[in-house]
Design a protein around this nucleic acid. Sequence first.
DNA 1: CTGTTAGCGCTTTCAT
DNA 2: ATGAAAGCGCTAACAG
Lengths: 358, 358
Amino acid sequence: MNPGPSRPKAAPTVREVAELAGVSPMTVSRTLSGGKNVRREVQQRVMDAVATLGYHRNENARSIRPGHRSDLIGVAITNLANPYYGHFALGVEEVAAQHGRRMLLGNTGEDVAREKQLVSDFVGRQVEGLIVVPTGGAADHLKGTRLGDIPLVLASRTVRGLKADTVLIDDVNGAYESTKKVLEAGHTRIGFLGNVISVATASRRYEGFCQALDEFGIESDPGLVTRGQQDAAAARKAMEALLDLEDPPTAVFSTNNRNTIGALEAIGQRRLRDPKLSPPTLIAFDDVELAHLMQVPLLVVSHNPKELGAQAARMLFERLDHPERAKRPRLIELPVAVGDILNQPRAKGRRVKSVAGG
Amino acid sequence: MNPGPSRPKAAPTVREVAELAGVSPMTVSRTLSGGKNVRREVQQRVMDAVATLGYHRNENARSIRPGHRSDLIGVAITNLANPYYGHFALGVEEVAAQHGRRMLLGNTGEDVAREKQLVSDFVGRQVEGLIVVPTGGAADHLKGTRLGDIPLVLASRTVRGLKADTVLIDDVNGAYESTKKVLEAGHTRIGFLGNVISVATASRRYEGFCQALDEFGIESDPGLVTRGQQDAAAARKAMEALLDLEDPPTAVFSTNNRNTIGALEAIGQRRLRDPKLSPPTLIAFDDVELAHLMQVPLLVVSHNPKELGAQAARMLFERLDHPERAKRPRLIELPVAVGDILNQPRAKGRRVKSVAGG
DNA sequence: CTGTTAGCGCTTTCAT
DNA sequence: ATGAAAGCGCTAACAG
């Protein structure tokens, strides 16, 4: 009657199932693996025993046998709170599921130490492969030898000096094309809202930004370049500072969705006080929900984070499921779509055509 | 020279490390578990061997020993692409990390079959506990016996007839209070944008909504109630339909962030065509980035999805780490914050005090 | 301090 | 069609 201190009764094992079904463990094992060479009737008895005992076969014990896959992949991303990485993780998960794999997901919070710890743990858990959005710090722990030669795919960011499959967004070009488009529209003072420099995407996008300025013979004004904003709050402050300048930029390049949100908040807030404020044109790398409806001139450089994750996963499974094909590390750059400048103020903006994209 | 077909050389084992270090496997094991009773010098030799071989101890093999924790929890959520669940997962992950656990994360996509499959797999992988955002379909597979009595925490939604720790948002009250506030502001025709009915949150929020209407003696007009919008696109259409009504609602209750986005898109789009459009007041359950800057009268019912995840994880670890304390299933409802109505139109909207309309 | 033995849950191999 | 034995990688328990 009294269940007692509810000792977490050890999970039933094959042996117990076997006993209850009146067969040997081997027969249970066979039944569970498809039922080859087991009489229908016996199979039924086994399945009944499984059901009554609530038996689940121990995948961990199973996976220590040689030649057995763990069906597990390890994924380390930097910030799960960012919807960008939510989509990314979903892309990975979906492809992993298609390939019959499960996903161990860890959040690094942009902390190398945590990344190291996570990766090491993943390897210990016998993941078949790793997908990592590297934090950008030292990355010895990602070296092949340290990983026991488990396949690794880097996503969204590279690591200098690390040979591994990599999927990136075409950052440089996206930044270049979009900046160019805004320059063509006549802007000459363009601000820059960036995230941490050590993050590879940040510098790549800055690179493209500068390329375009160079091409137009414009010297980047250091006073217009801000860096290191990791979240929307910081970005908002940075944007406010830009707006407060004596000679504020007429356009601002925002490196990522966090900066875009912050920038739009700053602008939106200002406008509540001064409805006539004519906001700067915003170049937004990464698409952001609702941004296009904010009545701020906006040029979106959009791409698909879910596809980024899916692609990373595909590269991984290419290696895992076809080790015979795989050769040297591959680098894939996913295309971005540079849109048109939306919400142009009616009077001014002369129509610039050009359609860019993938 | 030629590495050959690159046979994925089996991961090194304790034995190999032991051999290289000139000790027994046991000494390696001891060293790796803290180094008790191993001479410093020998430890060093072992660590060197570990480093040269790139050895990672096999956690799976380790975890089959009796009494050993797997340090793994299984988390099944419905839609990783929704930033809401990204935050949720982050909350879980952080608390799990604090407790030294790793997270197996699966996405159900609101599909019961997938949920069932995931949960079963998680159990087979020896997770110590489960956190599930139930899809809402049949849930036999979540019954204790089927789970091998692994602790389960339901998050965000309940399952009727299932005894398990549960963390919810205070949906009913949040919907009630916010609707009431809008009724007090003088609105009498209030639309409803809902998601799938089978989802428990949906009906709970609808319940609160109706409660408030009842209290003000207003009969809910079926023509104003829409249901089943799972994503922003569907929500947008539903909102457009509401706006197209001959006698459109002056306020609209949006059940969740997907519906809010869709509603704001619909309104924003309309306004581009007709800048004078006076948009309905939006009651937004779930906070949404940028929403408050959209110049749409807005009442946000906000809460913290990350905290929801953290709380779910805390309940789980309470049971795991203190099995002696744990008693009957607990239900926690996290409070919501009902804000003020923002972005009220200045000129027109005559200030209606808190007097109900018959 | 260190090594030997045994066995965790499972399945491959080899009987029967 | 079924079972017995052996061993995967690891570590308690017990020597020494």
